[in-house]
């Protein structure tokens, strides 16, 4: 049974959008997420850090052969608690909106 509840971490609009994009996939690259959200690296990084500190986000860095510098590809995914928090938050919104 899905328990509807509001969560201040997810309540911020951009963090809700981040979680909404990560929910249906196994994981996304940082650059793909940034492009889909149309935000800057710094803005996205700040919100990702908040989600990670709440234990809702898992990041995994790996080397990229295409890049000559020290940058790495960063894979992002929602943790189990992140998925549960998002589902509960969306259910709370649906309850208010009166949708299924």
């Amino acid at each position: 049974m899905l328990k509807a509840h509001f969560d201040d971490v997810i309540h911020a609009p951009l963090r809700l959008r981040i979680c909404g994009l990560l929910r249906p996939v196994d994981r996304l690259d940082f650059a793909v997420l940034r492009t889909a959200l149309e935000v800057s690296d710094a803005t996205l990084s700040k919100h990702l850090r908040t989600l990670a500190e709440a234990g809702y986000l898992v990041s995994d860095k790996m080397a990229s052969a295409e890049r000559g510098d020290a940058r790495r590809v960063m894979w992002l995914s929602l943790s189990g608690s992140g998925r549960a928090a998002l589902d509960g938050y969306l259910q709370a919104l649906r309850d208010i909106a009166g949708t299924l």
Partner: peptide, 9 residues
Amino acid sequence: ALAGPSADR
């Protein structure tokens, strides 16, 4: 808020 994730996806 519910429409946002759909547009992003």
